[in-house]
């Protein structure tokens, strides 16, 4: 125990502590990298597409944790950004502008505009009013999507091809798309990690705890929160673009309020504000849903009470548990 303390405070210990902090994520990424191989051997295309969906939701959950865990902004409308990205991709592919080099900038612009407008209004409120107004904006986009009769309306839009990348038809292969998604996920994880430790992240975290103090120091809390809102929105929008390509289908259910709720579950289940929380939460939730639904058609009868029990009795989230394990391992090593 004493050794561990000394090690933790010495220079060498700092490096191992940093590695320890991201060890669970590195493990998850390594396993995900083997996904296509495993699919070859066991699950086939189904496993690949399941893992892709898992990773895409993880990107969205990681971006949502920037808001909830770091910024204290409980957004109940985050799926709107996934939907925005997905519809930009879906519509552009349908209209023949299928290249990612065109779709991505367009999706980023659309997410930014939507985030700036709705964020600026939502951030006037706080607490439960913020939860509900973000939900309201999400619903507005949901109904907009439902009414796009030229693009499938309620029934959704089937895509007959995937995006090209600078003219090359790379993504029609599930394997390339898979690794593109994995790299994006790692990028999202690294980006949020960097943000949290940066000057910007420090202000954002401080404002979560005591906005009045941060304001009195000379920071405009509103600007920092709005910036975080835009960053998170754009990340989810990018996930949406990839999701449309993965599913080859876009529908209003991509941005239903239940999806936003699911993202919140991932963040909380994984451990709010923890380095690996949203990632582990997303992986665990998708895996759990998959396992339960393979056992019984009525899997929600089990999942619902499980969720209630988790909230009532598990306090730190999965990442908290994982961190404790890592710490124990370091101590032994």
């Amino acid at each position: 125990m004493k050794d561990a303390l000394e090690q933790a405070t010495s220079g060498g210990g700092k490096v191992s502590r940093d590695w320890g902090a991201i060890a669970p994520a590195v493990l998850v990424f390594a396993l995900l990298a083997l996904g296509p191989l495993a699919a070859e051997a066991y699950g086939g295309a189904y496993l690949t597409s399941l893992l892709m969906r898992m990773m895409l939701l993880a990107i969205a959950a990681i971006s949502l944790d920037l808001l909830i865990g770091q910024g204290g902004m409980v957004s109940f409308g985050h799926a709107a950004f996934i939907g925005l990205g997905a519809y930009v991709a879906g519509i552009m592919i349908t209209e023949g502008a299928a290249d990612l080099a065109m779709i991505l900038p367009m999706a980023i612009v659309a997410s930014t505009v939507f985030a700036v407008v709705t964020g600026a209004i939502s951030l006037r409120t706080s607490g439960v009013y913020f939860i509900m107004i973000t939900l309201a904006f999400g619903q507005m986009l949901f109904f907009t999507a439902s009414s796009l009769s030229a693009y499938g309306g309620d029934d959704g839009l089937t895509l007959w091809e995937r995006s090209t990348v600078f003219g090359f038809d790379l993504l029609s292969s599930n394997v390339t798309l898979y690794y593109l998604i994995l790299v994006t996920l790692i990028g999202a994880y690294a980006l949020v990690g960097a943000l949290v430790g940066s000057r910007f992240g420090r202000v954002l975290r401080a404002a979560k705890e005591n906005p009045t103090r941060v304001e009195a120091l000379g920071f405009s809390v509103f600007s920092y929160r709005l910036t975080a809102y835009v960053i998170a929105g754009v990340m989810a929008g990018v996930a949406g673009v990839l999701m449309a390509n993965q599913a080859e289908f876009v529908s209003p259910s991509t941005l239903a309020w239940q999806r936003s709720g699911e993202l919140i579950i991932m963040v909380v289940l994984g451990g709010m504000g923890l380095r690996n929380g949203a990632l582990l939460g997303a992986v665990a939730l998708v895996a759990l849903e998959e396992t339960l639904s393979s056992i019984t058609h009525d899997w929600r009868l089990i999942f619902g009470p499980l969720l209630v029990l988790t909230v009532l009795y598990a306090k730190t989230g999965l990442a908290g548990v994982a961190d404790a394990w890592v710490a124990r391992l370091w101590r032994r090593a």
């Binding site: 909830i68 409980v74 109940f76 607490g127 439960v128 939860i131 709720g261 919140i264 579950i265 909380v268 709010m272 009525d298 899997w299 929600r300 009868l301 999942f303 619902g304 009470p305 499980l306 969720l307 209630v308 909230v311 009532l312």
Partner: peptide
């Protein structure tokens, strides 16, 4: 849940929705 924060309440009651909706269907 009364003394928990709003986030916990949202999640736990979301779980109750999933359960009862499915129960009705079953």
């Amino acid at each position: 849940l009364y003394h928990r924060d709003h986030l916990d309440q949202v999640l736990a009651t979301f779980g109750v929705i999933l359960f009862l909706n499915q129960a009705a269907k079953t």
